[in-house]
Design a protein around this nucleic acid. Structure first.
Lengths: 237, 237
DNA sequence: TCGTCTGGTGAACAGTGTTCACTAATTAAA
DNA sequence: TTTAATTAGTGAACACTGTTCACCAGACGA
C-alpha cells in the first residue's frame, strides 16, 4: 500500500514518483477550483507540457487520478478532526469541536467533499464486502469510529442516555453532520439567506446551533414527554 | 408559467406538446436507472427514432431538459410528503411521517435527488436573490416552509422548547433529513452493514431511529444538564 | 395560392476519455 | 562497454459527448 521510502528507491523510481506527484499537484490545483468537470486530461497535459497519453503512463484512468485526490482530501479531513479533538480536553467541547471541524473542512473544499459522495453506491450488492471495503478504504469509516467512541465515552460519563446503541447513534450523528456539510456546499449562505425570526444568522452561528441540537438529542433524558426516548429498535428480520 | 389548457391549444401546439412529453418520458425512463451520465441526447434521439438535433427544437439544452426532470421529481416528492402529512392526525406521527416520507421518496429515486444537489452553488453570489430564487423555483423552499410550520405548531402545543427560532430549527432538521437521504443513496445499506451493538438493523428501523433523535432534539427541555439547551444565537454582524 | 413558419435532417465543430503503434532514452545485463 | 530490454513520451486515431448550422419538406395563415 504505502510506497517505499525515498532513499530505498532507484533513481528512476524516484524520478517517476516526482513526475507523478507533479501531475497530482497540478490536478489538485485545477480540481480545487473547478471540480471534476473542469479537470480534463488534455488540459492537465497541456498545463504540464506533456502529451495527453503521457498521463496514462502514471494513472490508469482519470477516475484513478481523481480517486487519489479524494483519498488525500479525506486524509486531511480526518487529520484536521483528529487534531482538533486531541487539542480539546473537556468532553463537551471535544464532541462539538469534532463535528464543527468536520463540517468546516468539508465546506472549505466543496468539490472534494461533493465528489466523494457524488457516485451512488450499487444498490444490489450481494457481496456485503464491497460497500464496506470502499467504506474503510475511503477512510469514511474512520469518521464513523471516532464518533462512535465519543458516544460511548459520553455514555460512560452519564452525559448521554445509556439506552441506545452507540453505533446507531454514531450513524445518526454522522448523517446530520453530513447533511449540513452538503447543504452548506450546495447553498453556501443558506443560513443567512433563508428566513430567520431574529435577524441574520451567520453560517458559523448556525453550525453551532445545529451541533447543539445534535448533541442535545443524545443527552440523558430526565423525564419522558409525548415522544418516546430513542431506544434500540429490535432487528425486524 | 403554466402551459395553456389542452382544448385551447391549436392542433399544431397540441402535437408539439405531445412530442415534448414523449421526449421527457423517454428521458425520465433512462434517467431513473442510469442518471445524468447515462442520458445522452444522441441516445435519446435514437430511442425515439429522431435526429439528435431534433431534440433541440424542443429543449434549449440538455441541462434544460434535465432541470425539468428534477423539477417534476421535486413536485412529486413534495406531493408525497403533503399527502402523508395530511393523512395523519396526531401531531407526533405527523412530524415523523413528514421526515420519513421525504427520506424514503428521496432514496427511492437516487439519481433525481442526487442530481438536484450535485451542483455547488456560487459561493460569491453578491446578488442575494440568486440562491434564494433558485431555492424557491426548485421547490426546495416548500420543504423548508412545511418543516418550519410544523416546528411552530409544536411550540404552540408546548411539545417543543419555545426558546428557539423555529426557522433555525427547521433548517437544522432539514439538514439532518437531507443527510440521511444522501447517505442512504450513496451507501444504500449502510445501516445494516456498519457495526451494530445488537445485531442487524434494517434501513427502515434506522430511519425511525434517526427521526426519533431529530424530534427529541426539539423537545421541551425539562432540566438543563451539562449541555446548554439550544437558544437563539444572536446575530454577530 | 403564396409566403412564412416550423419540424426534422445530416454534417460538422469542438470537446471529452482512452488506446495504439511508434520513437527515443534510460536502465539492466553480458 | 556494448547490447538487450524496459520504459517515457509522442501523435494520430477511435468512439463518444453537447451543440450549431445550412438545408429541405410540409403544414400553416393570409
Amino acid at each position: 500500500m504505502t510506497q517505499p521510502l525515498e532513499f530505498e528507491m532507484s533513481p528512476a523510481e524516484r524520478r517517476r514518483q516526482k513526475v507523478r506527484g507533479a501531475i497530482l499537484e497540478a490536478a489538485e490545483r485545477v480540481f480545487s477550483v473547478e471540480g471534476e468537470a473542469g479537470l480534463s486530461i488534455r488540459r492537465l497535459a497541456e498545463e504540464m507540457d506533456y502529451s495527453p497519453s503521457a498521463i496514462y503512463k502514471y494513472f490508469g484512468s482519470k477516475e484513478e487520478l481523481v480517486d487519489e485526490l479524494k483519498e488525500a482530501f479525506f486524509s486531511r479531513l480526518m487529520e484536521s478532526v483528529d487534531r482538533a479533538v486531541i487539542d480539546s480536553l473537556a468532553f463537551d467541547v471535544r464532541v462539538k469541536v469534532c463535528f464543527k471541524t468536520y463540517i468546516r473542512v468539508a465546506a472549505e473544499r466543496p468539490h472534494h467533499y461533493l465528489a466523494a459522495f457524488s457516485s451512488l453506491g450499487s444498490a444490489e450488492s450481494d457481496t456485503k464486502g464491497e460497500d464496506w471495503a470502499d467504506f474503510q478504504d475511503m477512510k469514511k469509516g474512520q469518521a464513523f469510529n471516532m464518533v462512535a467512541s465519543l458516544v460511548q465515552e459520553g455514555q460512560r460519563m452519564g452525559v448521554f442516555t445509556p439506552d441506545m446503541d452507540p453505533f446507531q447513534a454514531a450513524k445518526s450523528l454522522w448523517a446530520s453532520m453530513h447533511g449540513l456539510a452538503l447543504l452548506l456546499i450546495h447553498m453556501p449562505r443558506f443560513p443567512e439567506l433563508m428566513p430567520n425570526a431574529h435577524g441574520v444568522v451567520s453560517t458559523d452561528a448556525f453550525t453551532d446551533f445545529h451541533v447543539d441540537l445534535m448533541v442535545r438529542s443524545l443527552q440523558a433524558a430526565p423525564v419522558s414527554s409525548s415522544f418516546p426516548p430513542g431506544k434500540n429498535e429490535p432487528p425486524d428480520v
